[in-house]
């Protein structure tokens, strides 16, 4: 190896390490900061916490209601994933493997949906739910965890159907034919034979959508106006505002850890799947 090559390699390592540090240091710092007492925040931010002040977590969980918000987030994310799979899997399967009138139209619609960003339509969705509430007489569609889950599932449909039907298309035709010969009906074939075969792409879909539902905040902040109905990211927004007013720094960083820890744990467990899954889908919203 000549000198230029050596210098080049050192340069690459330095750049890569700096880049990695720019991610590890701030994220790691949040974990350390979540264990600091409030007084410590007036000192050098680079100093390590004096002790392990877990009190921050207890207070974030109870006083700042992050515990309730956590539960809300779990419910909304789980229900949304459930609805999404029940609705998207059959649609994706049928669109990928059957020829019928209207198939092109449906495909075009869902493909076009890939370009619709939820941030654009959050205001009309809100107004629609207000109108629907007026129609019924009470605003039951706002501050409603099921409705929020329904909105999440619906807005995830285009991406999910796109990804799943891409996978269904790669499966060989013989499996269905064999099932039909055995006397299995359409529905049975789909549920017993084809959907289990799509497992890898289903896992990818669950992972990506878990992350986007868990992290979502602009729809949640718009539709969940009352305190008890808020999800974790919205609760974190509250904490961010409160920290400036009341100097509750430790609590805020504890809340931050509560929001990101589940996603980080999931990521560490399945990071291979997540980064490989992207090759199946190729894009995301």
């Amino acid at each position: 190896m000549n000198r230029g090559d050596k210098l080049y390699r050192i340069f690459i390592y330095v750049v890569l390490i700096l880049f990695a540090l720019s991610i590890i240091v701030p994220v790691g710092w949040v974990f350390l900061a979540s264990l600091k007492e409030n007084a410590e925040f007036y000192q050098n931010p680079w100093s390590l916490p004096a002790g392990l002040y877990f009190e921050n977590f207890a207070r974030a969980w109870q006083e700042a209601h992050m515990g309730e918000y956590f539960l809300n987030s779990v419910i909304v994310t789980a229900v949304a994933l459930g609805i999404l799979l029940v609705v998207a899997l059959p649609a994706a399967y049928v669109l990928a493997r059957y020829k019928f009138g209207g198939r092109r139209l449906l495909r075009t619609l869902f493909m076009g949906g890939l370009f619709i960003n939820v941030s654009y339509i959050v205001v009309p969705i809100f107004l629609m739910l207000v109108d629907a509430g007026n129609l019924v007489g009470t605003p039951i569609f706002l501050n409603n965890r099921f409705v929020l889950a329904l909105v999440y599932a619906s807005t995830a449909l285009p991406f999910t159907i796109y990804l799943l039907s891409g996978y269904f298309q790669t499966l060989p035709k013989e499996y269905e034919e064999a099932a039909y010969v055995d006397g299995s009906g359409y529905m049975q074939t789909m549920i017993r034979v084809m959907i289990p075969m799509a497992r890898p792409s289903v896992i990818t879909v669950i992972l990506f959508n878990f992350l986007s539902f868990w992290n979502e905040y602009i729809i949640a902040i718009t539709l969940m106006t009352q305190d008890w109905a808020k999800t974790l990211p919205v609760g974190l927004m509250n904490l961010m505002k409160a920290q400036n007013a009341a100097a509750q720094y430790g609590q805020m960083y504890a809340g931050l850890v509560i929001v990101m820890l589940p996603t980080l744990i999931l990521y560490i467990l399945v990071q291979k799947k997540l980064t490989q899954g992207m090759n199946v889908g190729g894009l995301k919203d």
Partner: peptide, 14 residues
């Protein structure tokens, strides 16, 4: 890849 799994609120707070 880590930043991609964080919520926009988390990134804003960081």
């Amino acid at each position: 890849y880590i930043p991609n799994i964080l919520s926009a609120v988390v990134i804003a707070a960081i």
